[in-house]
Amino acid sequence: MGRTRGTPVDYILFLTADVTVEPNLNEIRDYKYVDKSELQAMFEDPANSFTPWFKLIARDFLFGWWDELVKRKDADGKVHAKSLAGIVDGSKVVKMV
C-alpha cells in the first residue's frame, strides 16, 4: 500500500506470501504492512487521506475478504488467497483493461 502523510492512499497489494519489497521509488514513496484493525484505525484518523476508489474497495471487498481469509488458515497457520475462490462476488468488480 503506498502512503505518506498528506498523500492519499492509492495502492492496494493483497497477497499471501513471504516477500522482499523493493519499491520503485518513482512510483511508491512509502509502504507499510498493517493488520485489519490498524487499517480501520487509519480510516478513522482525519490526518490520513484515501482515494475514493480505495475507500470503495475496502468497504465493499477488502474487509470481508480479510475476515474470510483469516477463517481459512491452514494447519500451519498460513493463509492462502486462492481459498477465496467460489465466495468472491465479482459482479461489483470493475476491471480496467
Rank of each mutant, 00 (worst) to 15 (best):
E44M: 12
E44P: 07
D45A: 06
D45L: 06
D45K: 01
D45P: 03
D45N: 02
D45I: 06
P46T: 01
P46I: 03
A47W: 05
A47S: 15
N48C: 02
N48L: 00
F50S: 00
F50A: 01
F50I: 01
T51Q: 14
P52S: 08
P52E: 11
W53S: 06
W53F: 07
W53Q: 04
F54G: 00
F54M: 00
F54Q: 01
K55S: 08
K55L: 15
K55D: 07
L56F: 11
L56G: 09
L56S: 14
A58Y: 11
A58W: 14
A58V: 01
A58I: 07
A58T: 03
A58D: 03
R59E: 15
R59L: 09
D60Q: 12
D60N: 12
D60Y: 09
F61E: 10
F61V: 11
F61P: 00
F61W: 09
L62A: 02
F63N: 02
F63S: 04
F63D: 06
F63E: 05
G64V: 05
W65Y: 14
W65S: 06
W65Q: 11
D67I: 03
D67R: 03
D67Y: 00
E68P: 05
L69D: 04
L69E: 02
L69Q: 00
V70D: 13
V70F: 10
V70R: 09
K71L: 10
K71I: 08
K71M: 08
R72T: 04
K73P: 04
D74S: 02
A75C: 06
A75L: 12
D76C: 08
D76H: 12
G77N: 05
G77R: 09
G77L: 10
G77I: 09
G77K: 11
K78N: 15
K78H: 14
K78S: 11
V79K: 06
H80C: 08
H80Q: 12
H80I: 11
H80M: 09
H80G: 07
A81E: 10
K82I: 13
K82F: 10
K82R: 14
K82L: 10
S83C: 04
A85M: 12
A85C: 10
G86M: 05
G86F: 01
I87H: 06
I87L: 10
V88S: 05
V88G: 03
V88E: 04
G90W: 14
G90K: 14
S91H: 00
S91P: 07
S91W: 01
K92D: 08
K92V: 10
K92A: 06
K92C: 05
V93P: 04
V94A: 09
V94Q: 13
V94W: 11
V94D: 08
K95N: 08
